Amino acid sequence: MKKIVILAFDGALASAITGVVDLFAMAGVSWNRIQKQNVQRLFEVQIATQDGQAIQCINGIKLHADLAFQDINLADVLIVPTIGAAINDVLQRNERLIDFLKKYPVDRLIAGNCTGNFFLAEAGLLNERHATTHWGFRQMFSERYPLVKLNTDQLISHDQNIYCAGGGLAWFDLGLHLIERFYGFDIAIQSAKSFVIDYRRDSQLSYSLLKIAKPHQDELVQKIQDYLACHFHQNIALEDIAKTFNITTRTLIRHFKNALDVAPNQYLQAIRVEAARKRLEETDQAVDLIMQQVGYSDPSSFRRLFHKKTGLTPLEYRRRFSRRFAV
């Protein structure tokens, strides 16, 4: 039986603790009951806090602890759950958790979920390693921990003995990966089926906002952004934009790179894909019609671009995120 210890703290996301407990506690149990087979518990799961006392999650739920950090014998995996409260405040209040991570044996498996990965980075465990975190905190994480090889497009990262999961509810993706690591693919799939959850999601792209809203003070770029917001569906070339605003193409590119850190053609692609996403979410229009409405005429090129930006085909995106229309 493998031992899982969750390092809990005030302000954590409750489901990132209780959900992990349920998933591991029921591995080898739920599926076997459904199949009328003998139950075989595969994991022992404990909740640890800095002093062994109960903690209060961000939603107000209080969770009792099984032990204190100092009483943890070597576990098969330590898991740091999502920070639900203000990240800086939680980090400042939990120096003992960070110190514990710093001193924990370097060869043991450690996993962080979502913003819980800030704890791993704060302890220096992610320096020069590949990692991920919630896409919404990419900039904050990158600025605070420049030595980390961050890729928030990934839902799950794995570098040596460190696992990181991206989104707030990606604890079940993380848990299934760890179940597969210890007990194989079949047990992981059985766990996923018994909980009715998808397995092997690998990207946060379809959940993230396209990075096109960076604030800046460039009045020219703002005017061009306003223009593109009204004309993105038209066949527009960089030369046309430059001519409209009486500047050279080189000047146009320079201003966009300085203000938004993106080339104008990439910006145009981003707002077109964002417009397509909204139409896929909010209408039942055909994909080819949406493609034309956002400024594309080649179906294969549009689908490749959409998949590159979101990690899904247009139809897959619609199935996952669209409103349910009455029939």
Rank of each mutant, 00 (worst) to 15 (best):
M1F: 13
K3A: 04
V5S: 03
V5T: 14
L7I: 11
G11F: 13
S15Q: 08
A16D: 15
G19V: 15
D22Q: 05
F24T: 00
A27Q: 05
V29G: 01
N32S: 09
R33M: 15
Q37V: 00
Q46L: 14
Q46N: 02
A48F: 01
A54F: 06
C57Q: 04
I61F: 12
H64Y: 06
A65Q: 02
D66H: 13
L67C: 11
I72V: 09
N73M: 10
D76Q: 07
D76L: 10
L78K: 11
P81D: 13
N88L: 12
V90N: 03
Q92V: 02
K102G: 10
K102L: 10
G112P: 06
T115Q: 12
F119H: 03
A121F: 06
N127A: 12
E128P: 01
M140V: 14
F141T: 12
F141Y: 14
S142Y: 11
Y145R: 11
Y163M: 07
L169R: 14
W171D: 07
F172N: 15
E180P: 04
F182Q: 07
D186M: 02
A188H: 05
Q190C: 11
A192Q: 05
K193Y: 00
K193G: 00
V196E: 14
I197H: 05
Y199L: 09
Q204D: 06
Y207A: 08
P215E: 02
D218F: 00
V221L: 10
L228E: 08
I236P: 03
D240N: 09
I241Y: 09
T244P: 08
I247P: 07
R250K: 13
T251D: 15
R254M: 01
H255K: 06
L260W: 10
Q266K: 07
L268T: 04
V273C: 02
A275C: 01
R277F: 02
K278F: 07
E282S: 06
T283D: 00
Q285T: 04
A286K: 07
L289F: 02
M291W: 04
Q292V: 08
Y296V: 02
P299N: 03
S300Q: 06
K308G: 06
K309H: 10
T310G: 09
L315T: 11
R324P: 01
V327Y: 13
